[in-house]
């Protein structure tokens, strides 16, 4: 029985899949440690069963759902996406998941629902880095309602046809391929429909020294510490094959989303 009922790829011949080993051993998941290898080393500390997702806010059918109740009604899809990290590296990952928009519609968001707010599990007993103040826990991310409803936005439950490893944000994480990786929040326990733009973790960090709420991949807007004009593709190749950087594409190459931002100055709303 194939895990994914539909499969689609958004990448071209120049985009080699990042090996499973690399996707699962080079992670930014600060709750499990700030080093790239820490999330894998500490992965077993995150217990994902049982898992409850609370859906609340401006919607007709709020509730607390088990992982099964949340995911089961949907067909699983495999989607091969580029993932662009704010640190100027990128990967190509075959995710397995459910379309975010379809999942959200089940809760019947009302007209007051202008944004969706996502929250990562907060459990300092379980998650070592939450016992220190590296970031303001819990990790919070958000999307504008129309962004969340875009067919490219995915809630991932797996990768490479296997259940999502803990270090990649098990059991349920967001994947928004046209935004920097930190927007794709991991290990989601709460989804709220809200009227005002939510205060998100990195946008609030350091008095706004990082990116803002939108954080769309944009080669013309630098991060304070990294130029975003180019990136290094991590595809399991040798150091010599990684020497060549590639140009970063607007919206990470996902031009379909451009109409969402029509009329917005993306140098201001970065």
């Amino acid at each position: 029985e194939p895990i994914a009922e539909t499969q689609w790829s958004t990448v071209g011949p120049n985009d080699k899949l990042t090996p499973f080993e690399d996707v699962t051993s080079y992670n930014n998941f600060y709750e499990l440690g700030t080093g790239k290898g820490d999330p894998k080393a500490n992965a077993e500390q995150l217990v994902t069963e049982p898992w409850t997702i609370t859906v609340d806010g401006a919607c007709g059918k709020p509730g607390k759902l088990s992982y099964d109740d949340f995911v089961k009604p949907h067909a699983l899809e495999e989607r091969i996406y580029r993932l662009r990290c704010v640190e100027a590296w990128s990967m190509v990952i075959p995710w397995v998941g459910i379309p975010l928009g379809e999942a959200l519609k089940r809760f019947e968001p009302t007209a007051q629902a202008k944004y969706v707010r996502f929250e990562t599990i907060h459990d300092p007993k379980m998650l070592p880095a939450q016992r220190s103040g590296v970031l303001d826990w819990p990790y919070v991310e958000g999307l504008r309602m129309d962004e969340a409803m875009h067919p490219l936005a995915l809630l991932a439950v797996g990768l490479y046809g296997e259940v999502l490893p803990n270090q990649n944000g098990a059991p349920l994480r967001l994947v928004v391929p046209w935004k920097y990786g930190f927007k794709s929040i991991k290990s989601i326990v709460r989804i709220s429909f809200v009227e005002d733009m939510p205060q998100t973790t990195w946008a609030a960090y350091g008095g706004g020294s990082e990116y803002g709420f939108y954080a769309n991949v944009n080669p013309t807007v630098d991060h304070p510490r990294w130029s975003q004009a180019s990136e290094r593709r991590l595809d399991g190749g040798s150091i010599f094959s990684m020497f060549e950087r590639r140009d970063t594409l607007m919206f990470n190459g996902y031009d379909d989303v451009a109409p969402l931002y029509a009329g917005m100055d993306l140098k201001k709303w970065f």
């Binding site: 690399d22 051993s25 080079y26 290898g37 590296w89 290094r232 991590l234 040798s238 150091i239 990684m242």
Partner: peptide, 19 residues
């Protein structure tokens, strides 16, 4: 480590960053 023989493994997923 450049040749994958280091006591603490090879250079990892992002070898240039490691160096």
């Amino acid at each position: 480590r450049l040749f994958g023989l280091g006591l603490w493994g090879a250079l990892g997923v992002n070898p240039i960053e490691s160096i």
